[in-house]
Design a protein around this nucleic acid. Structure first.
Length: 814
RNA sequence: GCCCGGGUGGCGGAAUUGGUAGACGCUACGGACUUAAAAUCCGUUGUCCGAAAGGACGUGCCGGUUCGAGUCCGGCCCCGGGCACCA
């Protein structure tokens, strides 16, 4: 009886079976080892895109593999539901963000179910649900009372036409994306969380994250950017004010030839009062984009303030400049410039013809000419008074000692990491639970009044946040003095929601607290999978949040994610797929045409997870063909119920069995250790090719084929679970595949007596040789030297060296 | 600009610890089956020379280490991600 592979029918049957059996619903009562397998939850943008399909499939393969390895697996799913696109959609289509979001979620949930992921849907979380964000408000208040959050002014991109704060991506060439108005930097008060208080811990604990890629750890290390330096102050000539600066290179202090301050620095503002040129320059600086990339790449400009600082050691007068690349938000808003030994200072000095002085020479006697380029390395001090001839490190210590003893400066550890600004002047986010009272100031909303609910039925104009036009929302009374007061109308950064959702999955319906005892069963996450684009912000904020929760007694875990797999982007035409670029590929059509298994298989076979995957429509067809070949091969196979290997295997049978067991070994390593699904699939395809070409020599061959097909179906089942569910039944198995365990291989079958090695002459491949595994170098030497082909290549030359790499190759050096 | 990745046939990629470059798949071409087409099956497919046997070249570029380099080191070029309000 011949049957055809019909994906839609098979996939529905498998999914119905898993649902009926509640296969993926995970309780906390089990003796088995837990395995928490998590994917970065999606923003409900409308439809799944290929990036989603890729990351969810990677994670699902891990979850299903671990399940077959006997683990008690939890794989949850939910929605990162707050964010800007809902507001944009609201403006464009005149629907409230909440309605748009919930509709998207419903549609995308259906798509996920169609793809057959092994999720525990009971634990679904939606972050715009007050039952979820209530606990963020609750934690924020606790942190407020602890002094871990504070309010200060900081800079935003201000669109003067739309009267709106713009995200960096909404500023295009210095103009608002909708209004086209020139965007201004504006200072407004915002809430901050003290992530810098955890900077040292976040940095040091990276060393223990063995399950994280080194690239991500390096990025986080550089981002935190711990540096040791000294803070010192320069007196101002003819003034009582001082200029505070921080430097990591006090050894270059004698080479400081000018100072530079930020446009917002008090000295610059003072100077601008009597100087229209300086005032104009400062005004012009306000137009600069607030992002670091923009500041680093813009043309460096400055003006002399006609103010002089006094060098704290030499007593020389040093000119003070105002410069557009010095930021008030970092440190003290002033720097000491050493053009001889710093690239940026050097370029600025060249541009404005400022003095460049060499005070360091390299350790080795390499000539440097600081007129052509700065020397930025460490070395030996020169022309530095009594510090001359010291090494940079010695001078660092002596100069730091000097300042500490005179009280003019001190050693300071600095971080590049800045506190996390969590305020957003947007509607579609978690309301910040603060009430402003004229008398009492900023007062947290009392716990029993939580959650502060975001009104969902709103009109959305795009001019500012609707909350600012809703007196019924913001008019309230002060919890301390009962006088009328106003609520905060800003909402949280959406990274807030994604910083702890993994804890909430463990106890999604906990009503008495942010988490409950189930958190300690599941946390930490054993395997976290997501895009490399989150390597810094999301992952660092989550590590920070985990520690905040730990210190609130909500968790005993410090690191939320034990193992991290960062998957590369799905690119189209060489760029990240995004709606903005209009280069998306809709997976839905492919699922309808070929089925979920084909899409899953193709995504996993096209590239290893961590590499960027350039999308191409071709190739899906190949995955589909392979599934058909597999289906047909098993369809025409004679079922063997009892595999009994009691006969003496022929040479070809031994080879086939070797192939089966070596494939099990390879695929186990590829999936379990290397996360290389593409090579695992290639290995399985090879085995099927071998089977299809195999010429049976005796009736017992069906026993071998049965063993091989069972192995293929199991090995492939984490990747294409539906077809494997059906094929397992076709192989005569009564227990469903979902309850089967991962196949084992037999080392004895993998032992070989004879192997093929290659012969090289001077590193070039010249021949092959079948040898006994245990051959000694001496035997091989005489074998090779009497080989006609090799003698021909030797061309009468004498052998200088004979190298034998056991089991691999021989290299004859002549 | 800074930090982190990547660059291998016509294409996606493989080569796991420095040891046969191109596994597996796609595309293309040739053949079988068919009235025909689709599907399927078989074969060929890095470039160049050669009838063939075989040989030379070849992993972004330049240089180095090594018996041996896609892999290690130094210098560059290009592409992607991140740069704190896209998520």
């Amino acid at each position: 009886m011949i049957s055809m592979y019909k994906s839609d029918h098979i996939e529905k049957a498998a999914q119905d079976f898993w649902a009926k059996e509640k296969c993926f619903e995970s309780s906390e009562e089990t003796k088995k080892e837990k395995f928490y397998c998590l994917t970065m939850f999606p923003y409900p943008s409308g439809q799944l895109h290929m990036g989603h399909v890729r990351v969810f499939t990677i994670s699902d393969v891990i979850a299903r593999y671990q399940r077959m390895r006997g683990k008690h697996v939890l794989q949850p799913m939910g929605w990162d539901a707050f964010g800007m696109p809902a507001e944009n959609a609201a403006i464009k289509r005149n629907i409230p963000p909440a309605k748009w979001t919930y509709e998207n979620i419903d549609y995308m949930r259906g798509q996920l179910k169609r793809l057959g992921y092994a999720y525990d849907w009971n634990r679904e979380i939606t972050t715009c649900d007050p039952k979820y964000y209530k606990w963020e408000q609750w934690l924020f208040i606790r942190l407020f009372e602890k002094g871990m959050v504070y309010r200060k002014n900081s800079i935003v991109n201000w669109d003067p036409v739309d009267q709106t704060v713009l995200a960096n991506e909404q500023v295009i060439d210095g103009r608002g994306w909708r209004s086209d108005a020139v965007v201004e930097r504006k200072e407004i008060p915002q809430w901050f969380m003290k992530i810098t208080a955890y900077a040292d811990e976040l940095l040091e604990d990276l060393d223990n994250l063995e399950g994280w890629p080194t690239s991500v750890k390096t990025m986080q290390r550089n981002w935190i950017g711990r540096s040791e330096g000294i803070e010192l102050s320069f007196d101002i000539y003819g003034s009582s004010s001082k200029l505070e600066i921080y430097t990591t290179r006090p050894d270059t202090l004698m080479g400081a030839t000018y100072m530079a301050v930020a446009p917002e620095h008090p000295l610059a503002l003072e100077a601008s009062k009597n100087d229209t040129e300086i005032a104009a320059f400062i005004k012009d600086c306000k137009k600069n984009h607030a992002s670091e990339a923009a500041i680093e790449t813009m043309e460096k400009k400055g003006l002399s303030l006609d103010i002089y600082a006094i060098h704290p050691i030499t007593g020389e007068k040093i000119p003070v400049w105002v410069a557009n690349f010095v930021l008030m938000a970092y440190g003290s808003g002033a720097i000491m410039a050493v053009p001889g030994h710093d690239q940026r200072d050097w370029e600025f000095a060249k541009k404005y013809d400022l003095n460049i002085k060499q005070v360091i020479r390299p350790n080795d006697d390499v000539e440097v000419n600081i007129d052509n380029a700065p020397y930025v390395g460490k070395g030996i001090l020169i022309d530095s008074l009594n510090y001359s001839d010291m090494t940079s490190d010695q001078a660092f210590d002596r100069i730091a000692d000097y300042f500490e003893s005179t009280g003019k400066g001190k050693r300071v550890t600095n971080f590049r990491l800045r506190d996390w600004g969590v305020s957003r002047q947007r509607y579609w986010g978690t309301p910040i639970p603060i009430i402003y009272c004229d008398d009492c100031g900023a007062v947290p909303v009392p716990e029993k009044q939580l959650p502060v609910i975001l009104p969902e039925d709103v009109k959305f104009s795009g001019i500012g946040s609707p909350l600012k036009d809703m007196p019924e929302f913001y008019n309230t009374e002060c919890p301390k003095c009962n006088k009328s007061a106003k609520r905060e109308t800003d909402t949280f950064d959406t990274f807030f929601e994604s910083s702890w959702y993994f804890s909430r999955y463990a106890c999604h319906d906990a009503s008495s607290g942010m988490t409950d005892e189930r958190e300690s069963y599941w946390m930490p996450v054993d395997q976290y999978t997501g895009g490399i684009e989150h390597a810094i912000l999301h992952l660092l904020y989550s590590r920070f949040f985990q520690r905040l929760m730990r210190d609130e007694g909500l968790s005993s875990v410090s690191e939320p994610f034990t193992n991290l797999l960062t998957q590369g982007m799905v690119l189209k035409d060489g760029a990240k797929m995004s709606k903005a670029k209009g280069n998306t590929v809709d997976p839905q059509g492919l699922i309808e045409k070929y089925g979920a298994d084909t899409v899953r298989l193709f995504m996993m076979s096209a590239a290893p997870p961590e590499l960027a995957l350039e999308w191409s429509d071709a190739g899906v067809q190949g995955a589909y063909r392979f599934l058909n070949r597999l289906w047909n091969a098993i369809d025409s196979h004679e079922i063997i119920k009892n595999k009994n290997f009691s006969w003496e295997l022929s040479e070809s049978q031994k080879n086939l069995r070797f192939k089966v067991h070596s494939t099990i070994k390879k695929v186990t390593d590829d999936i379990g250790r290397r996360y290389k699904y593409n090579t695992a699939i290639a290995g399985i395809m090879e085995l099927l090719n071998t089977l299809n070409k195999y010429q049976p020599v005796s009736p017992e061959c069906d026993i071998l084929k049965q063993e091989a097909f069972e192995a293929i179906v199991k090995l492939l089942s984490p990747i294409t679970p539906h077809i494997c569910h059906a094929l397992w039944q076709k192989l005569g198995k009564e227990d469903p595949l979902i309850y089967a365990s991962w196949p084992n291989y037999d080392e004895n079958i993998l032992k070989r007596k004879e192997i093929e090695i290659i012969i090289q002459i001077n590193g070039k491949l010249r021949g092959k040789l079948n040898i006994d595994v245990d051959s000694k170098q001496k035997e091989l030497e005489s074998m090779v030297m009497s080989n006609d082909k090799i003698i021909k290549f030797l061309d009468g030359k004498s052998v200088k060296k004979f190298i034998y790499v056991k089991g691999k190759l021989i290299n004859v050096v002549i």
